[in-house]
Nucleic acid binder design. Structure first.
Length: 265
DNA sequence: CTCAGTGTTCAGTG
DNA sequence: TCACTGAACACTGA
């Protein structure tokens, strides 16, 4: 379930299970939607018998580097993930690609909905789609005044800005809602004209929520009890937060938005 | 059977 | 150019 923390979990899976091993073969159904740029066969040919040297991430983009170019670039879409399992075991349900590695390890990307994408890039950081992305909030959070300048230069809603991957790479729908709930800011607030203290609260909570969810390996049952996350899914309109505040649902920036009017202005 | 959905992109519009 | 809206994508599971 892929926002930055879930993708970072995928990166760690790859780092622990795949780095240092050689890719023996690449399997999966030919699928021009998932393999949107190069065919599965072409990827298989390019990666066969190459050593995996690094697992990297920027925002929601994940890639494996090999002893030489190209790299394998993976995006999880809405329902993708990465799983390792021993040789002899069936690939996970909805698996779209499987890498067979030395040492009897297989690495698969299950993705029921097929919004995920698998491509190759010679220099991933400096080519689209990654070159189009904004800063990664886990590693590149701007300082207070830079961040303020970036925010007020835009003319949109704060939620729309947080979701804009060209601004900040890795925030998705629930994280944007969580940031704005914790920061006490109405998701519809215009970015130009926001006061410095509100902007700084957004910056700090962005960092906090990203760090905290990465720390627990994106395991939502370990998120702090005070997070709106736990209340937003069952989401009968009128549900209450742990603090007894009424939660409302509206659409902002085209996305379902859970918020607490009494605590966000 | 219907419908929403942790994401992205594109066409059309202002 | 910037930004917004809505639709499309493909499919599961409630």
């Amino acid at each position: 379930m892929p926002e930055l923390p879930e993708v970072e979990r995928g990166r760690l899976v790859a780092e622990k299970t795949a780095v240092g091993r050689t890719c023996l073969s690449v399997h999966g159904k030919d699928d021009s939607i998932v393999f949107c740029d190069q065919s599965r066969a072409r990827i298989a040919r390019a990666l066969k018998n190459k050593l995996i040297t690094r697992a990297c991430r920027h925002g929601k983009q994940l890639w494996l580097e090999f002893e030489n170019a190209p790299a394998l670039l993976i995006h999880f879409g809405m329902t993708g993930s990465l799983q390792a399992y021993p040789e002899g075991q069936e690939p996970p349900r909805f698996s779209r690609v499987e890498l067979r590695l030395t040492g009897g390890i297989h690495l698969a990307m299950p993705d029921p909905r097929r919004f995920g994408r698998i491509r190759m890039r010679d220099d991933p950081r400096n080519e689209p789609p990654i070159s189009m992305l904004g800063f990664d909030p886990l590693h590149q959070m701007p300082d207070k005044s830079t961040f303020r300048d970036m925010v007020v230069a835009r003319r949109t809603t704060i939620k729309g800005l947080l979701l804009n991957q060209k601004f900040c790479a890795g925030i998705g729908n629930w994280i944007a809602d969580e940031i704005l709930y914790q920061a006490g800011i109405d998701p519809r607030t215009r970015t130009d004209g926001m006061d410095d203290s509100s902007i700084e609260r957004v910056r700090r909570w962005t960092r906090k929520i990203i760090e905290r969810s990465v720390e627990v390996n994106a395991n939502s049952s370990k998120f702090p009890r005070t997070w709106l996350f736990h209340e937003r899914w069952g989401k009968p309109e009128g549900a209450l937060t742990r603090r007894g505040e009424a939660i409302e649902i509206m659409t902002v920036a085209g996305r379902t938005t859970a918020w607490v009017p009494s605590a966000q202005s």
